[in-house]
């Protein structure tokens, strides 16, 4: 029997359209821009080559236009392929760097939290989604800190020895209940 929780078995690919599609749109913008530049460059170069050929008038009868323009087409395609690879690599590196920075901050804050620091704000850099998750982490850290402060207050009151019996029992039960709510 598979004991994994249900949500771990689901295959949801489009988790966050704002995050995933925004990244995709950035890459598409580069590709569309590259495409426009490519079309313009091939058009301009092919037109130039064809004009040169007609102005010189040196061409055989069985000639195809491709024989005239293939060199500039190949050159333009290679230049565009190189340009696109460089541009997409730079974009990917920048995105990955931003994601790394955000997640590193989350990791750092969680390590600090395990050591007891529940009040330093996460303020995770990078993509907005990482920042939002950081805010949610701050929420649970803040909630835990409030609970810990209540436990501390109850414990201090109980330790003081100044409470009447009924008050002592009530505070003791409250302390027990609050401890039960700490990371259930």
């Amino acid at each position: 029997m598979n004991t994994m929780p249900q949500y771990n078995m689901r295959r949801i690919i489009l988790i966050n359209p704002r995050f995933q599609l925004r990244v995709a749109m950035l890459f598409c913008a580069i590709i569309l821009l590259g495409g426009a530049l490519l079309a313009f460059q091939i058009f301009r170069d092919a037109q130039l080559v064809l004009r040169e050929a007609t102005s010189q008038g040196h061409f055989a009868n069985d000639l195809t236009p491709f024989q005239l323009v293939y060199k500039v087409i190949v050159r333009d395609l290679l230049v565009m392929a190189g340009g696109l690879l460089v541009a997409t690599s730079i974009l990917f590196a920048v995105l990955l760097r931003r994601i790394h920075a955000g997640i590193l901050r989350l990791v750092e804050i969680l390590l600090k939290s395990a050591e007891g620091d529940l009040s330093t704000p996460t303020a995770a850099p990078g993509p907005a989604e990482v920042g939002v998750f950081g805010d949610r982490l701050d929420g649970i850290r803040g909630k835990t800190l409030v609970l810990v402060n209540e436990i501390r207050a109850d414990a201090a009151a109980l330790e003081s020895g100044k409470l009447a019996d009924a008050e002592f029992r009530s505070r003791w039960d409250a302390l027990k209940e609050k401890l039960g709510r700490l990371a259930p």
Binding site: N16, Q20, A24, I31
Partner: peptide, 30 residues
Amino acid sequence: ALVVCIVTVVLCVYAIHKVAGPLYRMDRVV
């Protein structure tokens, strides 16, 4: 441009899913 854009969207969504997915699942734990 259109074909490569569509394939790129799929590639990006899938690649970023590997980061967004864990965040999503952790969000549910939170």
